[in-house]
Amino acid sequence: MGVTVLQQFPIVEQRTGPSTIELLTKRIVALGATQQGQFLVDCETYSSVPQLGAQKTVHVLHNSEQPATVFSILETGSKTIPLITDGLFDLLMMKMSNFYQSKKQTKVESKGPRFEIGDFSVKLGSVAVSQNFKGILVEVEYRPCIVPAMCWDLIREFLQGFLGSSVSSTPPPYLQNKMQEVYTPNDTIQQYLEHFTVYRKSHFKM
């Protein structure tokens, strides 16, 4: 498991989502990447029923990179608690439907092609909030390295070479607090959740 950086890619007005994905695919293939199947990250959100007191929210996420794992993040308002479990947790959530109910129309997913180029793996995801296309998230993972501080410059150089000037020169806010720590799959999930929350909010505005 290497360090992963998640980056939003802006869509210019005259382009649609699929055509932007196509453009990025062309670019990455021209750099020498080979496609290695598809990927999917999805997120479902549940809220506690009023009887349980102060409202808590549980986000349940799956990542095709860790297919046997369910990531769940509990938000109590003051704290966020991540929980990493195996696949049975999904069934447990169904059992708890009396206490935690899924919000309607909030399933978010990011899916698309997955590429490998050298030691990097690149994923071009189209984000959809309950089937409506919202934007594009590009995920770049540098697999040999496990500490973000050591390889951020290297990943930034790769990102800028491939996405152009839309890449900022400072690490994503979530990573900034974790630069010296060993990177875990949970950190990838946290980044996805942050982006998904932003996309969801934009959904409610419309």
């Binding site: 750099l31 990097f120 050591m150 290297l154 150089e157 790769f158």
Partner: peptide
């Protein structure tokens, strides 16, 4: 290995390798 750029070309990556 991952953090220092090349002394000659001052880049991190060359053919996707540090």
């Amino acid at each position: 290995l991952f953090s220092s750029p090349c002394k000659k070309c001052a880049n991190h990556l060359h053919s996707n390798l540090p």
